[in-house]
Amino acid sequence: MTRTHRSLHRIVWPVLAVAIALGVALALWLRPPPEDSDDDARLTPPVIALEQIG
C-alpha cells in the first residue's frame, strides 16, 4: 500500500466507525415499539410506589 493509501485509511476508518456506530445506535434507540405489544400498557405511565415518593 502506498503512503497516501495508508493515510487515507487512517482518516476514513475513525470517521466511518463513529458515523456508523452513531447511526446504528440511533436506529436502535428510535425504532418504534413492537406492533403486537399491549398499546394501553405502553401509554400508561409507570406506577410510582408510595415509598419512593416519601
Partner: peptide, 26 residues
C-alpha cells in the same frame, strides 16, 4: 493506485449495507 482507490469504495458499500439493515430489518 487508481484501482485501489476505486476499490476502497467497498467501505462505503459496507456502511450503506449496515444502515440498510439498521433502518430496515432491525
Amino acid at each position: 493506485r487508481m484501482w485501489k482507490f476505486i476499490h476502497m469504495g467497498v467501505y462505503v458499500a459496507y456502511a450503506l449495507v449496515v444502515m440498510h439493515v439498521a433502518l430496515g430489518h432491525m
